[in-house]
Design a protein around this nucleic acid. Structure first.
Lengths: 151, 151
DNA sequence: TCCTTTTCGATGCAATTGCATCTATATGGA
DNA sequence: TCCATATAGATGCAATTGCATCGAAAAGGA
């Protein structure tokens, strides 16, 4: 942990990152709400499960992918199951756990969310920066990740 | 609103932005908790009020500065007042409103939060990118703001 | 095998957030 | 002036989040 106060450029970049990310999330959530659709977190989970395919995912695998706390994943999955968007299957070799799989209704919901979410992304980012700038941005952000991504 | 799906570079940059910003916030909140300090939102409000000086700020002015909903500001200010970190003063020319001013205890708390927050910023951003890169990042993010900042 | 520790997932309870609405004051006509 | 509308800020209630902990099953010794 560095002990001294950050440089002015650092503070400025930090402030921008905080403000912009919150603004973009808020606008996107508003767009989803306006369309009568569930929040972003639902999309994230449905997306990961769709990518995972028929094999599904264990809840603990979902946790690091979607960056949610364990209890949030547990409860979100319960809500998704109640809506019939995912199903939980017992897993043979681990009596504690379960496998979660997306249902056809879940895929359909994911598709409907994407229609709005994708448009929001294009609107808020794609229209504002060039392809080259987007790549520069992604590269710089990748270096802030943990673990960092060089590219 | 653009109707088509965003380009791959756009999606990638979006994903990085979402993931990185959440990761950085989470780590910073963890650092504050570990230090027995209040959450980031408290800092934001105390910071704005400190900048505003003796004149203080009206709650509605705080709302757009800190990007919180009206009811969140209302309740956050109530908590800060209960802790003696801010004080509410009636405002002469508008009987509905009030002016909120930071107290000495509030300044002290802000200082203590910054000791950890600033170190976290330096650690998570300052140490990862050069000054030039930080400026590039801030510039690109500025263009995503609403209203956008060209520089 | 038996016992301790770890991991997986759920949940009770308190705090916070979101939504809708409320009260009070101010503002802008007719 | 009087009334309709708008703005400032607070709040009741429901949903969500965070924290701590729990129960159950697995893993790892001794």
């Amino acid at each position: 942990m560095t002990r001294k106060s950050p440089a002015p450029e650092t503070i400025k970049a930090w402030g921008r990152l905080m403000r912009v990310s919150r603004q973009l999330v808020e606008r996107t959530e508003d767009a989803l709400k306006a369309g009568g659709l569930p929040p972003l977190a639902w999309y994230d989970v449905l997306h990961e499960l769709a990518e995972a395919g028929e094999g599904g995912l264990r809840p603990f695998e979902l946790i690091d992918r979607v960056l949610l706390a364990q209890y949030n994943v547990s409860r979100l999955l319960a809500r998704l199951e109640a809506e019939g968007l995912v199903e939980k299957l017992p897993v043979s070799d681990d009596g504690r756990g379960q496998t979660v799989r997306i249902t056809p209704a879940g895929r359909e919901t994911r598709r409907r969310i994407w229609a709005v979410y994708g448009a929001s992304i294009a609107d808020l980012m794609g229209d504002k920066l060039s392809a080259k700038e987007l790549e520069t941005l992604a590269g710089l952000l990748g270096r802030l990740r943990d673990p960092p991504i060089a590219e």
